[in-house]
């Protein structure tokens, strides 16, 4: 009897309670994500929208720091923010705009090139740093101040000096990289490679695979892709611009780890939760990431039990606590 009454009540009020768990997600779902996630997220959008036909997924890609600023400073509405560096979420969005931060995948740095790049036929794991220093070779990376891929590229160079035991390596190589070879986003470098404006460019492995570029894979010690080497990565330090011009903060090397969060004032939390659930499913989003060169964490990770408790209940089953 009581149950029957509850059902009636539920049916009568259900449409007015968007938070009610069993309502089917619908409407627009806005996701901001790092440029390096464009390809796997496009694939996820395709599958997610067939699963939830009433949801219209709108994605906007850009440098992670920029996208985070759009939310925190311009107040652009978004439901989900996925960053190429999970620390961006910690730094820019928590605590005002978000409460938690899930690490869901990794990546690593590779040195990309094409058939027409100078010395393309001789470059390998052991001589790449020497080639980058050669006169006439044009190589570049993205802006360390705007794109995590940028400062990570510099970290790889610092680590290489230590790993190959060549103390002057970083300075020698950087001397051959005029400022004009620095571009805001790492993905832009791909077209510069393809049109022949550049010979070598630092990219994430995922980008290299997705764009079918040739690449030099680097040892785990320096590629920032394996968290088992985080202690060694820590030795790399890059100064990037701080909160205002003229101020600097130091980024310390650590493995590339993607972070994702749902924003506090998400316009469509129901759909956002559905998407996050899909993303963190080892048979769903994580599998797509794996196929595209961005090895996922299975299961995904949060740093503290406290944070796990702050997650929406439906998502808690997909994460483990591990720092």
């Amino acid at each position: 009897m009581l149950r029957g009454l509850l059902v009636v009540l539920f049916l009568a009020t259900g449409t007015f309670f968007p938070l009610s768990a069993s309502a089917e997600p619908e409407g627009k779902l806005i996701i901001f994500h790092a440029g390096s996630l464009t390809v796997p997220f496009a694939k996820m959008e395709e599958i997610f929208e067939t699963r939830y036909p009433k949801v219209d997924l709108l994605r906007e890609a850009g440098g992670s720091t920029k996208m985070a600023r759009m939310i925190s400073e311009l107040g652009k509405p978004a439901d989900i923010m996925a960053s190429a560096d999970f620390a961006v979420i910690d730094k820019t969005l928590i605590p005002q705009n978000a409460k938690w931060n899930i690490r869901f995948a990794t990546n690593q740095l590779v040195l990309c090139y094409t058939d027409t790049s100078r010395f393309a036929d001789e470059v390998n794991q052991d001589n790449w740093y020497e080639i980058l220093g050669r006169k006439g070779v044009i190589w570049g990376h993205s802006d360390p101040n705007l794109d995590p891929c940028g400062y990570r590229s510099l970290m790889v160079l610092q680590l290489a000096g230590k790993y190959y035991n060549r103390p002057g390596l970083y300075d020698q190589v950087m001397a051959n990289r005029p400022e004009k070879n620095v571009r805001p986003k790492s993905v832009e470098l791909v077209s510069l490679l393809e049109t022949g404006h550049m010979d070598y460019a630092w990219e994430y492995l995922s980008v290299a695979i997705q764009h079918g570029l040739k690449y030099v894979k680097l040892p785990n010690e320096i590629n920032l892709g394996n968290y088992n080497f985080d202690d060694f990565y820590k030795k790399a330090m890059v100064k990037v611009t701080g909160k205002k011009p003229g101020t600097w903060i130091t980024r310390t090397g650590k493995s590339c780890t993607y972070g994702i969060t749902m924003l506090e004032d998400a316009p469509n939390p129901e759909a956002a939760k559905a998407f996050l659930g899909f993303l963190m499913d080892p048979k769903g989003g994580l599998k797509i990431l794996k196929d595209m060169g961005q090895p996922p964490f299975i299961p995904c990770r949060v740093p503290t039990a406290q944070m796990k408790a702050q997650l929406p209940t439906v998502l808690q089953k997909w994460v483990e606590v591990k720092n």
Partner: peptide, 11 residues
């Protein structure tokens, strides 16, 4: 544009 993306509106 760079100032906006790196430091925000204020700068």
């Amino acid at each position: 544009y760079e100032r906006f993306t790196a430091y925000g509106l204020k700068y």
